[in-house]
Design a protein around this nucleic acid. Structure first.
Lengths: 140, 140
DNA sequence: AGCATTTCTAAGTATTTTAATAGGCATTAG
DNA sequence: CTAATGCCTATTAAAATACTTAGAAATGCT
């Protein structure tokens, strides 16, 4: 159970755009360089975001991407759903025993709550934290 | 972002054992038949559960598996972690920008809370629900 | 003792997903 | 005109998933 690079790099793009909101377009090249990612790969990820209307592109030299909407109006869920597809925690959940279904529903609801209540403005404004040092802290 | 059949079928096994707790061993064959799954595949999934000490096996005719501990002492997290591996929501999270890390941490915490607060006793005792008909309800 | 039942172990395989890479066309600022 | 950028399509290597196949080992029942 993982979030793939699609969702992750997509979030990276959107947070960068949120940070530069109102200050002109940001190129994928600059984002790729800052985060040490493949520009070509980011192109593929930004396409669904554009098709979904979350970003607008400005072509040509000194072009790039800008957010269509205010960062406070865009949730992490909007982005993750577009990039990871409509998230099915469990394939064929309707065939499962009600006992088990209960668990998936609980997990689904908790993830949903986080995704829909976290905006990219929240994330873009996030201050440096104290630095979590324990590697195990990243495991569920 | 999905829970694979490993975690799902593993939960199926454990809930069945919880339902039959104190009433002798349950064979994988019976579980496979009840839930229309491959017995051979279940064998592979039950091995890690045995190695982790969550179930005890009784070999030979009329054998099967029994829970090692009380169903109220076994959480969904115990099972999912053994079968899906220690869950890393995001690979290399420590390399990510703090802004983004914040999101993964929030999601991780919410999933963790559900997994660690749901026991297989809870699930085994779950009563038939009213039946959710909307297929979209299963998407996050 | 012998047989059916069941666990245990290892190997193989088709399919899908992931995470890119490659190559090139289209558009636009300076 | 040219460099910088977005846009589009195809290909691919590696890994994960979801099994299947084959058979050995243990045990209860008759």
């Amino acid at each position: 159970m993982k979030i793939s690079t699609k969702g992750r790099y997509g979030m990276t793009i959107m947070i960068e755009l949120a940070k530069n909101h109102g200050e002109g377009p940001v190129s994928l090249k600059s984002i790729a360089q800052t985060h040490n990612l493949s520009e070509h790969y980011l192109e593929q990820l930004v396409a669904p975001l554009r098709n979904a209307g979350f970003v607008r592109s400005i072509r040509g030299a000194y072009g790039g991407y800008v957010l269509t909407n205010e960062p406070s109006k865009v949730t992490a869920g909007d982005i993750i759903r577009v990039l990871e597809g409509p998230i099915v925690l469990v394939e064929g959940i309707e065939d499962e025993a009600p006992a088990q279904r209960e668990l998936w529903v609980r997990i689904r609801d908790s993830i949903k709550a986080v995704l829909d209540n976290t905006t990219i403005e929240d994330l873009a404004n996030h201050r440096e934290d104290t630095g979590i040092s324990d590697a195990n802290m990243f495991y569920i």
